[in-house]
Amino acid sequence: MAAIFGVVDFTRPSVRSPRKVVQHMATVHGLSLATDLDLYGDGWVGMGYLPERFQTHPRQDIFYINDRLVTLVEGDILNRASIAAASRIPLDTMKQISLPQLICHAFEHRGPALFDEIDGSYRIIIWDHVDKLLYVVADRYGFRPIFYKIINKRMFFGSEIKFLLKGLEKLPEINPQAIADFLSFGYPISSDTFFDGIVRLPGAHFLQMKQEQIYLIRYDEVEPEGKSKIRDAREAVSLLRNAAITGVKAYSDTEPTRVLLSGGIHSRLVAAAQKRLGYPVATLTVGEPSSADAQIAGNVARNLPSRHYLQKLSAAAFLDNFSRSVWLSDGLLNGLNATLLGMVPFLK
């Protein structure tokens, strides 16, 4: 996946030239990628784009610059025709201009209201170099992550945390709560990352920054679907049980099945559904025997009952295999796992 990153600096005089900061951010793991860098920079903002390393399709225009706006668009936008129509851009014109140019013209016509109309997987950066106003936009579901960190009147942003770490003058502290949340739930339960102060921009949100004024704005208000048809908790439990049994039955048979039992609600539900179907169940837990998860999983296994196996995993063994696990889970292409990959040198 291609990468974007940059900095906006409202300190005066600027601490460092934004253009030079972006060039420095393009040096990752000791390897300078500046020769592949598409770069825009002025006295206030710097933005860079790096294409996919093994890109086979023709390289597209990423920046569009007019007398007011600098527009960077990376990703896929599916409803270009409807955006053009709503912005009074003729269809023939739309076919002849680049995607950043289309978004630039549409933004001039619609303003931030445009963001709610865009459908796709994308990242958009818009810099108004007349009013000195920056917009950083995440797609509706956050498919393409954008991370940012604000320091005084400067904001660093990028599609991967490693670019931010390179641009910062001082490495941030580790965020223990974010690590605990990830190890407990298997995913981040907030926009925080493993690095203190580095935040992931939520899906369907955009950042608006001017001087020291920074706003996080949601552009997609979810419409309520009406009142629930479920009458009470008993009916809700029954529906959940039936759905779990139906799902497990579709992927299981009468052979002994091992359920990876963490002690959490999802693995408990799968194991209980297996048991309700009459299938022989064996459960497996990986972790420290003294941990709360391992003890809860053991209690669940005894109550099923099921044959239970505990694979011991020490903290040292976890760290030794952490880097390899991230790589095997496609860490370079996934925003969350890119976060994990950036953590490895600090954990060791």
Rank of each mutant, 00 (worst) to 15 (best):
M1D: 11
A2E: 15
I4P: 07
F5K: 07
F5S: 07
V15A: 09
V15T: 11
P18D: 11
R19S: 05
K20P: 12
H24I: 08
M25A: 06
T27A: 10
V28G: 08
L33M: 12
Y49D: 03
R53Q: 03
R53P: 02
R53N: 04
T56L: 11
I62F: 14
I65S: 08
D67K: 14
L69K: 13
T71P: 07
E74I: 09
L78I: 15
L78S: 15
L78F: 15
I83G: 00
S87D: 06
R88K: 08
P90K: 05
D92P: 08
K95Y: 14
S98W: 02
I103P: 01
I103A: 02
C104W: 03
A106D: 13
H109K: 12
P112Q: 04
F115N: 09
D116R: 12
E117C: 13
I118A: 04
D119W: 10
G120L: 05
V130N: 10
L133F: 04
L134Y: 04
Y135S: 08
V136H: 03
D139G: 06
P145C: 00
Y148R: 08
K149C: 15
I151H: 09
N152Q: 12
G158E: 04
S159Y: 03
K162Q: 13
L165G: 00
L171F: 14
L171C: 15
P172A: 05
I174R: 09
P176E: 08
P176M: 06
I179Q: 02
F182N: 12
S184A: 12
F185W: 13
G186E: 06
Y187Q: 13
D192N: 01
D192I: 00
F194G: 03
F194D: 02
V199Y: 08
R200I: 10
L201D: 07
P202R: 12
G203H: 05
A204C: 10
H205V: 08
K210W: 09
Y219V: 08
D220N: 15
G226H: 05
K227Y: 14
S228H: 06
S228C: 09
R231V: 10
A236M: 10
L239G: 04
L239I: 07
R241M: 14
N242G: 12
I245E: 07
G247A: 09
V248Q: 01
V248R: 02
Y251D: 12
Y251Q: 12
D253S: 06
E255Q: 14
E255N: 14
L260I: 08
S262A: 02
G263V: 00
G263H: 00
G264V: 02
V270C: 01
A272E: 04
A273P: 00
R276Y: 04
L277K: 00
A282N: 09
T285L: 06
T285C: 05
D293C: 03
D293H: 06
A294N: 01
A301H: 01
R302G: 10
R302W: 09
R302P: 12
N303P: 13
L304K: 01
P305I: 03
P305E: 01
L310W: 02
L310I: 07
Q311H: 12
K312I: 15
L313P: 00
A315C: 15
A316C: 14
A316V: 15
F318E: 05
L319D: 02
S323T: 15
R324Y: 12
R324N: 11
S325F: 13
L332A: 13
T339E: 11
L341P: 00
L341T: 02
P345Y: 05
